[in-house]
Design a binder for these strands. Sequence first.
DNA 1: TAATACCCTATTTACTTGGTAGGGTATGCA
DNA 2: TGCATACCCTACCAAGTAAATAGGGTATTA
Lengths: 137, 137
Amino acid sequence: MLSKKTKYGIKALTYLARQENKTPVAIATISKSENISLKFLESILLTLRKNEILASKKGKGGGYYLLKEPSEIQMTAVMRVLEGPISMIPCVSLNFYEKCKDCPDENACAVHNLMEQVRDNTLKIFRNTTLSDLCKC
Amino acid sequence: MLSKKTKYGIKALTYLARQENKTPVAIATISKSENISLKFLESILLTLRKNEILASKKGKGGGYYLLKEPSEIQMTAVMRVLEGPISMIPCVSLNFYEKCKDCPDENACAVHNLMEQVRDNTLKIFRNTTLSDLCKC
DNA sequence: TAATACCCTATTTACTTGGTAGGGTATGCA
DNA sequence: TGCATACCCTACCAAGTAAATAGGGTATTA
């Protein structure tokens, strides 16, 4: 299940991507427009900044803005920063791999092979979708 | 993230599907073979029985067995019974739909449209995969 | 210098997961 | 009939996570 954190994060990113100019937008502005708890959104944007998807400007007239062009921000990056693994199970994860304790042979595991298929397909979608695609809705 | 419940359930189902004849298999047998906590597995198999994927026989020589042919058991059914929604977000779920509180217009929501794509692809995989496919690993 | 707005840590509440415990009940076989 | 087997059912618990809240600190700019 997608966390609210990721959901709010994506919404905030599309909000920023839709801005004409690249002047910073205050957290409170996004919070009101997208119906997101101010403090919760604050921590999400902070995470995105630490992971170099967003940048910020302090003080009066400050706020957050995109570090790259919307067309250069892939959903794989956003998902991994906010949600963590894209795979449904750690034993098929590319970036968050972990071996199953109960499973002696991954290649003989039905769950492993099924979830590998799901991962491949989901990955393909996230790779082929950028922030600019999401703004077209 | 896939729950252990679903993972164990699929493993148990493939174990049953691999049986030559359709004689009942005791929970303890599957538990040992697949390294699954006995009592936890018991509750999982019970769920599968209540949802008419498995049937059981009580008493000596009893156990669980498949109600249908492996090739007739789609992964969509298994996933919905054990994991719940296949979608990553309730607002795109076919069987567990729920409206987002913060979202005034679903069709204008970037998250909604992205997750709809993911759902379609995952659904396609689960629909085209039966228990007999999983046994081929 | 004062207002703005980001920055950071800590805490709370509610919920879910995974597992445990213990006994009840139906079945088959000697 | 009686006993062992093995499913059936309810309740409980520890640990972790999600989502939100609180409160203050710091940099910037007008």
